[in-house]
């Protein structure tokens, strides 16, 4: 619950940064803050009270029936959000690097990082 609220606050702060800052690098920092907030929300949704990590080792209480099938008795957290966030973080780094390389090329070509200097798409 607490982590959920702080994730929402991080998303709002990141969008605030993207809306008010003029510098392109600062806008990309806002994007990465939004990224972290979304990951926090997804992980917080998968949490279960007093549960252990989704790895079936000696810390997890298991029992097996006659046919040999193993049943997990104690609580573990939901593994699906973990699996989603795991890949999303790596993709987030690659996308951030792509945005930054766009910014570097813009600076090399036109010598400015201020978003107000790019008026081609304004109307």
């Amino acid at each position: 619950m607490l982590v959920l609220i702080s994730g929402v606050l991080l998303i709002i702060i990141g969008i605030w940064a993207m809306l008010t800052r003029k510098n392109i690098i600062r806008i990309i920092i806002g994007f990465s803050i939004v990224d972290t907030g979304v990951h926090m929300i997804i992980v917080a949704i998968g949490y279960i009270k007093n549960a252990t990590a989704p790895i079936i080792d000696s810390a997890v209480n298991t029992s097996s029936d006659i046919s040999g099938a193993v049943h997990v008795n104690s609580l573990i957290v939901d593994p699906v959000p973990s699996a989603l966030v795991l890949t999303a973080i790596v993709i987030g780094l690659a996308v951030t690097a792509l945005l930054l390389s766009f910014a570097i090329r813009l600076y090399k070509v036109s010598g400015s990082l201020n978003i107000d200097d790019y008026e081609e798409l304004k109307w």
Binding site: I56, D57, V70
Partner: peptide
Amino acid sequence: PTRLNPLAEAYVSSSVNDLNMPNVV
């Protein structure tokens, strides 16, 4: 939530029984 939803429960039990793998993620 206080317990796993059915999808996650199915993943956990088939990861342990079908694939013989401790790490469900």
